[in-house]
Design a protein around this nucleic acid. Sequence first.
DNA 1: CAAGATACGTCAATATGGCTGTCCCATCTT
DNA 2: AAGATGGGACAGCCATATTGACGTATCTTG
Lengths: 162, 162
Amino acid sequence: MTAAASPLFLREHEVRRGVELLFFGYTRLTRSIDEGLAEHGLGRAHHRALYFIARQPDLTISELLKILSITKQSLGRVLTDLAGHGFVETRAGVVDRRQKLLRLTAQGAEFEAQLFDSLRNNLAAAYGAAGQESVTGFWRVLEGLIPPADRQMVAALQKDIR
Amino acid sequence: MTAAASPLFLREHEVRRGVELLFFGYTRLTRSIDEGLAEHGLGRAHHRALYFIARQPDLTISELLKILSITKQSLGRVLTDLAGHGFVETRAGVVDRRQKLLRLTAQGAEFEAQLFDSLRNNLAAAYGAAGQESVTGFWRVLEGLIPPADRQMVAALQKDIR
DNA sequence: CAAGATACGTCAATATGGCTGTCCCATCTT
DNA sequence: AAGATGGGACAGCCATATTGACGTATCTTG
């Protein structure tokens, strides 16, 4: 390991720094919404569903399954809970009546907005402290962590109309 | 909501983008090591402990508890498993014999290095694709997500000697 | 139109990784 | 000697995920 040390190897320190910041940054951000969720007896799994339904109204079950990468059974429980709280409602699909289109109720939208406030406060503060150029870099690196096969799905969230 | 719209509010789109990229980036990165863990019947909780012990040899139990933010009981199970696999060993503390200093065995270090290869491959690829300026921004934003009270703990990981 | 594929739901059992509460021992501090 | 601290252990619980099997409504296609 004298001459041929790979550039990748030399980056160990930078890689460990990234791993650690990702771990702490991600967990701290998600932790900020736990209290709001607990007030309704819900957990993070419920928030993830709530979030993506808010993001893409009329999402179908199978689209949501792909986004969350969990099984139908796991999602079923979560959606049952959310429907029981009156946060989510479904309609039959227009083009395909087998589909269920997921939407937030007014209550659900209000609750999601309340949780989003925490996320916004924390992320906006981090954006502000880091500066706009940093935000661009933040996005670029994270995009590179997403396997190409998944990138289209993530990009689809950005166009607000479907 | 005409004149007084807060700048934070106007950032909703950027905030959602950050939330989503963090979610997908973090989950995809961690997913990349699941196979290696499963080969030994271990899970991500084991990896987190393994990782931080590798990072800070002679870490004490209570220091590791603070880093992971879990309970003594939860960590106990994880460490029992890791010791059972011969990946982790403890010595009595030098200055305080009540403490247990955690270290990886040779086997443990080899296993951690193998898992770290996946992390390195993925993160180094993302770093490379994004460029060095982006990496700096990536770090800066993530640092901003960590509450000031926790930053010292995270920074302490960077100095390799204790 | 019949046959098969698809979208979704559901029952049952299991694993993982957290949690609380309680009690214990060894060791350090005062 | 008394109390505080680091760590371990027992018991039970909860949240979130898994697999496998099966059912039903609806769409698609030969």
